[in-house]
Design a protein around this nucleic acid. Sequence first.
DNA 1: AAGTATACCAACCGCGAGCGC
DNA 2: GGCGCTCGCGGTTGGTATACT
Length: 202
Amino acid sequence: MPMTPISSKCTKKEANRGAWTAEEDQKLAKVIEIHGPKRWKIIAAKAGLNRCGKSCRLRWMNYLRPNIKRGNISDQEEDLILRLHKLLGNRWSLIAGRLPGRTDNEIKNYWNSHLSKKVKQNEKQNGRSSEIQESMPKNSKLNEHNLDAISRKPEEGTSNGDLEAKPNLFGDALLDFCNEEPLDLGWMREFLEMDESWFNLL
DNA sequence: AAGTATACCAACCGCGAGCGC
DNA sequence: GGCGCTCGCGGTTGGTATACT
């Protein structure tokens, strides 16, 4: 009998769907412990879960990964999300990359259920656009290069000389601002005041 | 107490990029 | 260069909890 080609998509036939059980979580975590969090298709098969690799990856990334913070997004984190969203738009993974322990899915959900309303309300009040990138001055210091710099995750290139090789306008202090305890956004104001017209849009 | 509306969030879907063959 | 596979991302859906009437 010929082998059925393995589809990269999760089909309704092949995969269990819906909420994950504690037992499934346990099995998945066990397999990842052995094989590492890659080759999700293989992991899904090895775990003996009737789930597609994609689903396993999502579960791991959003719930089972170590050091995940859940719920209780602080005012500081919220402020940071708002500012980063103005800067980066709906690039949730990049925003999440600046918030240790938070996942893109959580931030996206938080934005859609809480912050988008707040932003709309604020815009109604002061008539500002949230599209900071559109309204940024063309000669703004915050150009694509700098966007790339802020996009870098904290664990990327922080000690490998990459940042030194390609110095960015923000510098490590900026890239690591979300690790500050307590979080102090004063530096951000200070930095952004370098281009006051741009900062005023925030 | 029951029915309905709304909020929240976990999970799914489709797409595109990157990679190896 | 073309193809298939894998992975990651952002948008969307659907189930559940809570609030409201």
